[in-house]
């Protein structure tokens, strides 16, 4: 348990796969069937993070919920929707994340970006200016070209099934705590 740094306020739902070797700091709720790989890092400094269902947090991804200057230190909740994929090495500091988003490898999303639903942030894309991403937007390439897809990317059901089966074979997991469902 040397590397496990999660306190008592991390709540893991039934069916979630959270590896021991990841870093969860602050009040974090992990939804059912969400997979958190080893070496992922989720920090809730500015308030609790509530993670929905069927999300995948890959290795070396960093999700940070920082204190916001505007709220004068009042804690704000960061809601992460369902079916999101945070690929290897992405850094997401966003204040709101919807459903079915894909943050590709090494992408960066700044703290003033609101991510809607079905957005795809391509590999290496860095979004730093304050904006609200429209639904189904795809940002790719070195020029950060934007297109709007017809529909949301499909949920990674097969990959999730595979990970939930395989990850427990090779990693120690954090068990969901048996305690009544009260906040």
């Amino acid at each position: 348990m040397a590397t496990s740094s999660h306190g008592k306020d991390v709540r893991i739902s039934q069916g979630a796969v959270v590896c021991m070797d990841c870093k969860l700091e602050g009040p974090i709720t992990v939804g059912p069937r969400t997979v958190i790989h080893p070496k992922a890092c989720i920090t809730a400094e500015g308030g609790p993070i509530i993670i929905g269902e069927n999300n995948i947090f890959e290795e070396q991804c960093v999700i940070k919920h920082k204190l916001d200057g505007e709220t004068k230190g009042r804690p704000q909740t960061l809601n992460i929707g369902s079916n999101n994929v945070f690929e290897v090495g992405c850094i997401v500091l966003s204040k709101a994340i919807g459903d079915n988003n894909i943050f590709e490898a090494k992408s960066f999303v700044g703290p003033d970006v609101e991510v809607g639903h079905g957005c795809i942030i391509g590999a290496g894309v860095s979004l730093q200016l304050p904006e609200k991403l429209p639904d189904n937007v795809i940002v790719t390439g070195s020029q950060y070209n934007r297109t709007i897809a017809a529909d949301r990317p499909p949920p990674q059901t097969l990959q999730l099934d595979f990970l939930t089966k395989v990850l427990p074979n090779y990693h120690h997991l954090r068990r969901p705590k048996d305690r009544p469902n009260v906040l």
């Binding site: 795809i120 391509g122 795809i138 790719t140 390439g141 070209n145 297109t147 897809a149 017809a150 990317p153």
Partner: peptide
């Protein structure tokens, strides 16, 4: 696979 463009679009 890069920009997620499909022929369905």
């Amino acid at each position: 696979f890069f920009c997620r463009w499909t022929t369905r679009d």
